[in-house]
Design a protein around this nucleic acid. Structure first.
Length: 257
DNA sequence: ATGGCTTGAGTGTCAAGA
């Protein structure tokens, strides 16, 4: 039974493994999706994760990207990458855990509006959308968790005027996010009352976290059947306060048993 | 002010992140 699912961009699992193990022990999620492991599969810390009581599946590469699903139950029907979308970058892993289809995604950053990387991001989002539309016909209980690299609305941005039209906030990126919600996927975080200025990422520079100069770019989207059973969603800022933190905080959703 | 910090690669100093 899945009761707690989470996502966390760890910005190098090699560096962040102690934080991840501590967080698993404290939170005991049923599923934790990781992004930016920055590891080849052969370097993934399977033994440490298993010792913590979790099965792990990984889709990695050297230096960049890399995604993993950690789960207390065994993952089934594992898919690496978006089927039919030729992509040298390891950004998606999906599997079924206790009857819930878990899709873990590290959506491209895009670097700058109008750049080649921006075009890649928008193409990537189109492929993701087409694939998920199909997945939803097969899996009524589906969750898309990850680093979307999109702040969906101005209230997800510490300084909306400065960020207007910029990367992570541009109209085309926000439209792509809405296309996902138009598949029926609900932003779990916005189904509940939340504090003002709630963010999931803060720049390492310029005291970004201390000043709460952040963005909400890490999300959990839920299919209608799963959203109906979702009882809470929150961002856990605690790991961002530790020594040598990831620049992202985990996002957690609770599902009724 | 296109800076500010962190990571990986690799041993110089750059690419990439968001």
């Amino acid at each position: 039974m899945i009761q707690k699912i989470a996502t966390w961009n760890v910005n190098s699992l090699k560096v962040r493994l102690p934080h991840v193990l501590d967080w698993l022990a404290a939170q005991r999620p049923d599923v934790l999706c990781l992004q930016e492991t920055k590891l080849e599969d052969k370097a993934f810390p399977f033994a440490e994760i298993e010792a913590a009581g979790y099965h792990a599946i990984h889709h990695g590469q050297k230096t960049y990207n890399g995604v993993a699903i950690l789960a207390r139950s065994e993952a089934q029907d594992i898919v690496r990458g978006i089927p039919g979308f030729d992509d040298p970058q390891a950004r998606v892993i999906a599997a079924t855990v206790d009857g819930v289809r878990i899709v873990c995604a590290y959506i491209p950053n895009g670097q700058a509006v109008g750049s080649d990387k921006y075009e890649y991001k928008l193409n990537w989002l189109r492929a993701l959308n087409a694939w998920l539309k199909d997945e939803l016909t097969r899996y009524p209980r589906l969750a898309l968790l990850g680093d979307y690299n999109i702040a969906p609305e101005d209230r997800d941005v510490h300084d909306p005027v400065a960020w207007r039209g910029q990367i992570l906030c541009s109209d085309a990126e926000r439209a792509a996010f809405r296309t996902l919600t138009e598949l029926g996927l609900a932003d779990a975080f916005r189904r509940f009352d939340q504090p003002e200025k709630a963010f999931s990422w803060w720049d390492y520079r310029m005291l970004g976290f201390q000043k709460n100069h952040g963005l909400r770019i890490d999300h959990i989207l839920l299919s209608p059947a799963l959203a109906a059973d979702c009882t809470a969603c929150a961002i856990d800022r605690a790991p961002r306060k530790l020594e040598r933190p990831s620049d992202h905080a985990p996002v957690v959703a609770e599902i009724r048993a």
